[in-house]
Design a protein around this nucleic acid. Sequence first.
DNA 1: CTGAAAGCGCTTACAG
DNA 2: CTGAAAGCGCTTACAG
Lengths: 344, 344
Amino acid sequence: MPKPGPRLRLIDVAERAGVSLATASRALSGREGVSEEVASRVRQVSKELGYVANPYARTLAGGTSSTVGLVVHQVDDPYFSEIAGGVIQVAAEEGLLVQICHSGRDPDEELRQLRHLITQRVGIILIAGSGYSDPRVEAEARAQLSEFQALGGRVAVIGRHALGVDAVLPDNEAGGRALAEHLLELGHRRIAVAAGTAGLTTVADRLAGVSSALRQRGLSLDTLPVVHGDFTRDGGRVAAEQILRDHPGTTAIIALNDAMAIGVLSTMRAHRIPVPERMSVVGFDDVSVAADLAPSLTTIRLPMTDMGRMALTLALKPRSTRPRRRSTGHVLVVRDSTGPTPRD
Amino acid sequence: MPKPGPRLRLIDVAERAGVSLATASRALSGREGVSEEVASRVRQVSKELGYVANPYARTLAGGTSSTVGLVVHQVDDPYFSEIAGGVIQVAAEEGLLVQICHSGRDPDEELRQLRHLITQRVGIILIAGSGYSDPRVEAEARAQLSEFQALGGRVAVIGRHALGVDAVLPDNEAGGRALAEHLLELGHRRIAVAAGTAGLTTVADRLAGVSSALRQRGLSLDTLPVVHGDFTRDGGRVAAEQILRDHPGTTAIIALNDAMAIGVLSTMRAHRIPVPERMSVVGFDDVSVAADLAPSLTTIRLPMTDMGRMALTLALKPRSTRPRRRSTGHVLVVRDSTGPTPRD
DNA sequence: CTGAAAGCGCTTACAG
DNA sequence: CTGAAAGCGCTTACAG
């Protein structure tokens, strides 16, 4: 195994291969204008010596950074850490650094993080997580990103559609529809929704799916309780408490992500309401613990790790004239938290 | 709010402040040898203009990098993502980049990641997660780290004690003892352990705590079943199946981390063994979902986020002559997964 | 196809 | 205390 020794420079490789610095640089970066023979010799020597380019010098000289900035709403939420896992996999394969930033679902903080990444000259920006309904926020983000792209930066987002960049889009609407259909087929009609913050597009999209399933059965979301709260476990608890208090006849609760569903389940347990016998509960995302809750959670599976991989892969491709969109697909995973309507 | 504009350089700040490049550099980096008056003027101008140094140029010139490499066993395991969250917080406060690497609990892969970080010239290396009992592995890692430190790199680790560097040390032994004492006080004697891979020091340390509690009661770990498996949910399931099969009289299972405990609980559910009525189960770590499992998990709480913060904070301090050690403390959190011995 | 040279934006001896 | 200059290790026009 080659032992690099921390001081090996490109010039060392060049000398050893008997070529100039410029030629060595071209050979290693796979650029045009080097005979295949020379190029392969340089690569050979480089490998033997265990040469690794200094990324700082490379960035400074070339203007293109090998750092990818990843902005997430919440680093220690499993939804985001699984996405980050996918991004990190691809980054490792490509020899890129990943810089993770945390916005805490605060749009202004997100804007600040974005600006910071741009100022730091990262080469790629990835944003994961719901967009905001507030057009001012999205317009500002959009402006920053397009300025960044104009300077050669690459961008991809996960779960945001209003940014005019390459996007990986989870099947939020279709997933919401599948969830509602599942409950309707089980006979539920008194359904309540524990929704995330009203200003998030993901919430709106999943809700739209629910609404469309209801409409197909001649029902309307407007007649059903939709309780908004934080897109977290605690948000789920608060929403569930409110639903139990204000809508005691409810037989099923749709939580719009698994974190909220976990909170809902915990509230049911606290009130000794058996799930699914008295109350069915569904989530969205299928984070890895969803299968281990008691009862195990019926939810929509999204391929989080793959979404992370896809996003970075998109960003690595040459920019296309129009933004690319990749849909994730989704699967309804039926487990033990849903059952037929209780008859009383 | 200052709008940086991506092309602002230190020379621009210097000119605006009416000083030379060198003076501006010194003023901003807080170095000696600038009159306080000049220094504060430069800082003022820099702030007004919204100047942010180019980290690549800075690293290339100064030799000290502002990226921190974080090596974890498993990025999407909550134990590690919470630690990473803490590291990211501090990094953000200090304007550092975080590069996360994943070793998959493979010691050779870890060594490879380490070498890669060193070659990439990161300024700080953080390693989180159990060490290996194999002295060869630890010696190799130790050698690499000391070479890195000799070149000016800073290092801190979480949960490893054999590396001769600053360390944040979870209370593994004391936690193991507390867990065992808790079960002993509830009357349990037929206790089994679902332990992680045998080669991990964390496993050995937690086991040592369990053993010491037993000894104090005149019992011995040698007479109890200790089943080794992966330090994951699936490892917990496999271990639990084996315990049920080979030691049907068992009344309590100590899982040496929460991931395994989740697997154990899921196996109990599959076998319809009520917890804690027929079987008590405990974990270790207190990942955030531990409270949401059914039954909620009795476990040892470790302050993961703080551990991440502490580790980076240690690494940021000037190096001391002898390695520093910070103990985390621990709390036994009693929840619903433990109860008195069943009498039959 | 190949090389000599300039330049990326900083920091840090080296002089004053 | 302050400044002019060299240098960090690359990439990329610019010549040949």
